[in-house]
Computed example of a mutant assay.
Amino acid sequence: MRELPIHVRAIRTLITMPCEDVGVGRTCRSILAASRATGLACDLSTSAFLGARPTGLPVNSVIPRGLSRLPFGLFRRFAEPALHRRFLAALGDGDIAYLWPSVPVSVYERLARRGIPIVAESVNTRMEAAKPVLDAAYAALGLAPAHGITDDRIAEQNWRQSLCTAIFAPSPVAERSYVGTPVADRIIPASYGTWVPGSLPRRPLKTPDASVVFVFVGAVCVRKGAHRLLEAWRRPPKGAVLRLVGDIEPAIRARFADVLASDSVSSIGFTRDVAAELLRADVALLPSLEEGDPIATYEAAAHGLPVLASEAGAGRIGAETGAITLLDPDDIEAFRARLAEFAGSEELRRDRGAAARQAALGYDWSRVGPLRFTRLFEKFGWT
């Protein structure tokens, strides 16, 4: 493992699952790359690292690069124990263990016994808070819950967090989920963000016969409020189309088959070229019921799109700047009225899109990545 500067505490990061170049893996590497660029001593350990390695960030992976695109299940049995042994052996006096959700309880326990500070990333709201919200949503649809949160997983998460020195909560909704818990005083407010493009192509004015494109980026699922969006879209705004960019949950596909098959809706499943979809769109939507701090909102704002979102979907940028237009996904008539308002006014779209773009500049990874560690060090008086 490469040596790090010794004038500050080293942030030794562990993400047990393969660190992909999308989703959680991309978020993790963006935070670390931005922080390393400011001089923070940090590195990353993972089973496998997929995609380009950020300049200057030491990455320690078990699975050789040439094999990293093969199914992880082929290597998991030996890769994870080897990774954890290396990670634990590399930690020295004064180091901080920065753990992401895939890290098993046994690693937390070993770190706690050694007295090493453990800082965890709360990617989403606490499971114990999220489960009743999602249970109620599935029940309202007459469906069995498909969110995967069990009592055993809740108990395991609670035990992990009880061993932590600090926990990063990326949004106000995530923060509130810790109120009244034994670890409430360990929460450090943080946020996610995006790499904000330096410039954008100018969007042409809409011709009278051109459709207004509303885009939804992310898993098309109950958790992200897709059922409320599709219910509202049973009566779509005049001249508007809906573009779904993400895999569709089977229950959503079955329940809203008629809406999904309509001429005003198109879907492409998962894509890595989200920027292309955003540049072709006019308005972004994210009516989530539960989130951590959705990257999709930051990306849409950074591309100059007005964003209509629930409080959870608006995330930290919505709470702090007011640049995201809030909506209540459970009020279907108000939801429809808001869609029609934005479909009918190019001036409103451009106005709110410009405000979102300006706000996004404050959430570039270069700013929010290192800020979380500044707050961490200040909280504990670390240097």
Results as ranks from 00 to 15, higher is better:
residue 1 M to L: 13
residue 9 R to V: 09
residue 11 I to P: 00
residue 16 T to H: 13
residue 18 P to F: 00
residue 20 E to L: 06
residue 32 L to R: 03
residue 34 A to G: 00
residue 36 R to H: 13
residue 39 G to F: 06
residue 42 C to S: 11
residue 55 T to M: 12
residue 55 T to K: 12
residue 57 L to Q: 07
residue 65 R to T: 13
residue 66 G to K: 10
residue 68 S to P: 07
residue 76 R to A: 15
residue 76 R to H: 13
residue 80 E to W: 11
residue 83 L to G: 08
residue 87 F to H: 02
residue 107 V to D: 03
residue 111 L to A: 00
residue 116 I to N: 00
residue 118 I to F: 05
residue 127 M to Y: 09
residue 131 K to D: 04
residue 132 P to N: 01
residue 138 Y to P: 01
residue 138 Y to N: 05
residue 145 P to Q: 02
residue 145 P to D: 06
residue 149 I to L: 01
residue 159 W to P: 05
residue 160 R to W: 01
residue 162 S to Y: 00
residue 170 P to V: 10
residue 171 S to D: 00
residue 172 P to K: 05
residue 176 R to W: 08
residue 181 T to D: 12
residue 183 V to E: 12
residue 192 Y to N: 14
residue 198 G to T: 14
residue 200 L to T: 05
residue 201 P to C: 04
residue 205 L to G: 13
residue 205 L to V: 14
residue 209 D to Y: 03
residue 214 F to S: 00
residue 216 F to V: 06
residue 219 A to I: 12
residue 221 C to S: 14
residue 228 R to V: 11
residue 237 P to C: 02
residue 244 L to P: 01
residue 250 P to G: 07
residue 250 P to A: 07
residue 251 A to W: 04
residue 252 I to K: 12
residue 257 A to V: 05
residue 264 S to I: 02
residue 271 T to E: 08
residue 271 T to S: 15
residue 280 R to H: 09
residue 281 A to P: 07
residue 281 A to Q: 09
residue 281 A to E: 08
residue 282 D to N: 12
residue 288 S to K: 02
residue 296 A to M: 04
residue 297 T to C: 08
residue 299 E to L: 10
residue 300 A to E: 05
residue 303 H to N: 09
residue 304 G to Q: 04
residue 308 L to T: 06
residue 308 L to D: 05
residue 314 A to M: 13
residue 315 G to P: 11
residue 316 R to K: 14
residue 320 E to H: 10
residue 325 T to R: 12
residue 330 D to V: 03
residue 338 R to L: 15
residue 346 E to W: 04
residue 350 R to C: 10
residue 356 A to W: 14
residue 360 A to G: 14
residue 362 G to N: 03
residue 366 S to A: 12
residue 376 L to S: 04
